[in-house]
Design a protein around this nucleic acid. Structure first.
Length: 508
RNA sequence: GGCGCUAUCGUCUAUCGGUUAGGACGUGAGAUUUUCAUUCUCAAAAGCGGGGUUCGAUUCCCCGUAGCGCUACCA
C-alpha cells in the first residue's frame, strides 16, 4: 500500500476566481507530487449548476500558468482518467448511486426544500438521521406503492446516504493524527439530486478520487468535519483498502480581526486575495490580483509556502526546486496562519534583488514606453542595476529613477530648503565651469578632480554636491551623483544644472 | 446550540522533557554614505489559565478559557 504511486489533485469549483488559500493548497499538493515523482491532477468540481460562473475555469488555469505550477493531468491537459470535469461524468456517478441504492446503503428522499425548512424551524437542531428519517418522506418510511407513485409522477427526489448510528469513525490524518468521531452526529447527507442529475460534492469526490487513483487528499481544514463521512463512503463502496491518505491543512486567516481570509476581503484590506485580476461577469466588479499589482510569482509562492509549513531550519528564501526537496507534510503546522502581507512585500523586494537586472528591466521597459520614454534596453538595465535595491515593486522604479530619463520639471521644496542656501548657486555655477573645461568626464576620473577642487576652495563636499544634486534630480535623493552624470552625459548634466541656475533664485 | 480542530514575541514560526526559548517580517536605535534609499549592527518583544505525570515541563495527560472550522438538494 505504501508503494502506491503518489497521485494528488487540486479540485476547485468554478464559482469565481481562485482564492489565495486555494493557491496555497494547490502549492502543497504540487510540492508533494513533485517530491515523490507522482502526478498532480487538475479536476473541476462543477456539480452545482446554480453556482457556475463563466470564465472561472479559464481564470484558474491562467493563474497556475502565471504561478508556474504545472499539472500533469486534468482539464486542459488530458490524461487516462478523464473526463476531469465532473459535469461530464454524470453517467459514472449514476451507476455508483444506483449501486448504493441497490445495496440498501442509500435511499430516496422526497422532502421538498420547503418541508425541510419547516422541519428545521419546528425542531431545534433538526438533523436528517437515524432519529428522524422515519418521520420524513422517503423510500424507507413510505409504503412502496407511494414511492412508486411519486417516482411515476416525476416528483423530484434526492438520494441520501444511510448513516448507521453509534459507529466510531477514525480518520487518519497526516497532519492531525487520528481523529475519531461518532457516526451519530453525522446526518444522512444528500449524495445525488434528481433535479439536475448530478451528485453532490461528497459522492463525486469519493468516486473520482477512487477512479482517478488518488493516493493523498491534501485539502483545507474546512473539510475535516466531513472527512468521517468520506471514510464511511469509501467503506460503503468497499474501497477502504485503497482509500487515500488525508492531510488537512490549517486555514489562512485575516491579517487582523477574526475569521478565515475570504474572497470578500479583497481590496478592503489593502492587498489582493486573488492571483490575477478578476472581472466579475455578473456585477462588473473588479478585484485586484497579485499579477496586476506587480508581485513576482516567485515571491507569492515562497511566502505562501511558509504559511503553515517550514523546512525545519532558518531558511526562508527558497526556489521551487528547493521547496520540492524540503517539503514535508509532517512539518505543517496545525493552527491557522494569519496572512501578513507585509512579509509578502518583503519577499517581493528580496526577489527583485536576486533576479537578473535584465529580467527586471524587461518588466520595467513597458512602463517606460507607456510614458513615452524611448531609452535603449541596455541603458534601462543599467538604471535597474543601480536602483532596484530601493524598491519593493517594479512599478515603484519610475518614481525612484525618472530623473535618469527626464530632466526635473520642478524642485522639491524641502530639499531646496536644506541645500539651496547661499552660496549654493555659486557652487553650482563654478562647478559647471570646472566640469566644462575638465579634460575628462567619466565619474571615476572626474570625481577625484572635483573633490580636490572643492578641497582647494575650502567648501564643504556635502554642500556643493547636494546643491548640484538638486539641480540634476530635482530633489535630495538618488544614487551616487557620478552614476547619474555618467548616465545622462556631460551635455545634459551641464544643461540641467544651468537651467536650474536660471529658474531657481540664488538662494532660498 | 451540537460536533471537531487549534493555542510560543504584534505576525509567520523553531524547540520533538533539561535551551540565556532560536530565526524571519514589522518596530526602535546606531553605523556607513556628498542626499535619499539600500546594506550592516544592536535592541525591545512570547510559552492562555488551572490541575496533574515527572527529579524536571513550552513540550505528555485532563479540565477550563479563547480562537477557528463545520453544522445546505455549496464546495
Amino acid at each position: 500500500m505504501t508503494e502506491r504511486r503518489v497521485r494528488v489533485r487540486f479540485a476547485p469549483s468554478p464559482t469565481g476566481p481562485l482564492h489565495i488559500g486555494g493557491v496555497r493548497t494547490a502549492l502543497y499538493n504540487y510540492l508533494f507530487a513533485r517530491q515523490h515523482g507522482g502526478d498532480f491532477i487538475f479536476r473541476i468540481e462543477d456539480t452545482d449548476s446554480n453556482r457556475f460562473v463563466p470564465g472561472a475555469e479559464e481564470y484558474i488555469i491562467e493563474s497556475f500558468q502565471w504561478l508556474g505550477l504545472a499539472f500533469d493531468e486534468g482539464v486542459g491537459v488530458g490524461g487516462d482518467h478523464g473526463p476531469y470535469r465532473q459535469s461530464e461524468r454524470r453517467d459514472i456517478y449514476k451507476k455508483y448511486v444506483q449501486q448504493l441504492l441497490d445495496e440498501g446503503k442509500a435511499y430516496m428522499a422526497f422532502d421538498t426544500p420547503e418541508e425541510l425548512e419547516a422541519k428545521r424551524n419546528e425542531i431545534a437542531n433538526f438533523q436528517y438521521d437515524a432519529t428522524t428519517r422515519m418521520q420524513m418522506r422517503n423510500s424507507l418510511a413510505l409504503p412502496k406503492e407511494e414511492v412508486d407513485a411519486l417516482l411515476a409522477s416525476g416528483h423530484q427526489y434526492v438520494v441520501r446516504f444511510l448513516i448507521e448510528p453509534g459507529v466510531e469513525v477514525h480518520v487518519n490524518d497526516l497532519i492531525r493524527g487520528n481523529v475519531v468521531i461518532n457516526s451519530s452526529v453525522l446526518d444522512d447527507k444528500v449524495l445525488y439530486k434528481s433535479a439536475d442529475e448530478l451528485p453532490t460534492y461528497h459522492l463525486a469526490n469519493i468516486v473520482d478520487d477512487h477512479l482517478m487513483e488518488v493516493s493523498h487528499v491534501i485539502r483545507g481544514e474546512e473539510w475535516l468535519p466531513s472527512a468521517p463521512l468520506h471514510v464511511l463512503l469509501y467503506r460503503a463502496f468497499g474501497w477502504e483498502d485503497t482509500m487515500p491518505t488525508f492531510a488537512h491543512l490549517p486555514l489562512l486567516l485575516k491579517p487582523e480581526g477574526n475569521g478565515k481570509l475570504s474572497k470578500r476581503d479583497g481590496d478592503r484590506l489593502g492587498f489582493p486575495v486573488f492571483p490575477l485580476e478578476w472581472h466579475d461577469p455578473k456585477t462588473g466588479d473588479i478585484s485586484s490580483g497579485y499579477r496586476e499589482k506587480d508581485y513576482l510569482p516567485e515571491a507569492v509562492i515562497n511566502f505562501l509556502a511558509l504559511l503553515g509549513w517550514n523546512p525545519g531550519n532558518d531558511q526562508e528564501k527558497m526556489t521551487l526546486d528547493e521547496m520540492i526537496q524540503l517539503f514535508d507534510l509532517s512539518r505543517c503546522s496545525k493552527a491557522g496562519a494569519r496572512f501578513d502581507y507585509k512579509k509578502l512585500v518583503w519577499f517581493n523586494h528580496e526577489y527583485i534583488l536576486s533576479k537578473d537586472d535584465a529580467e527586471i528591466a524587461r518588466l520595467f521597459e513597458p512602463m517606460l514606453r507607456e510614458r513615452g520614454i524611448n531609452e535603449e534596453f541596455d541603458r534601462i538595465v543599467k538604471v535597474v542595476s543601480l536602483m532596484k535595491g530601493r524598491v519593493n515593486f517594479v512599478h515603484e522604479l519610475w518614481d525612484t529613477c525618472c530623473y535618469f530619463f527626464e530632466a526635473p520639471e520642478s524642485y522639491d521644496e524641502k530639499s531646496l530648503k536644506k541645500w539651496w542656501k547661499e552660496p549654493a548657486s555659486t557652487y553650482v555655477r563654478e562647478l559647471c565651469d570646472f566640469i566644462e573645461q575638465a579634460p575628462v568626464f567619466a565619474g571615476a576620473e572626474i570625481e577625484p578632480l572635483i573633490m580636490e577642487w572643492i578641497a582647494s576652495k575650502e567648501w564643504g563636499v556635502g554642500k556643493v554636491m547636494n546643491a548640484f544634486r538638486v539641480t540634476l534630480v530635482g530633489a535630495a535623493v538618488g544614487p551616487h551623483i557620478f552614476e547619474l552624470t555618467d548616465f545622462i552625459g556631460k551635455e545634459e548634466t551641464l544643461r540641467r544644472a544651468r537651467c536650474a541656475l536660471e529658474v531657481l533664485p540664488a538662494a532660498i
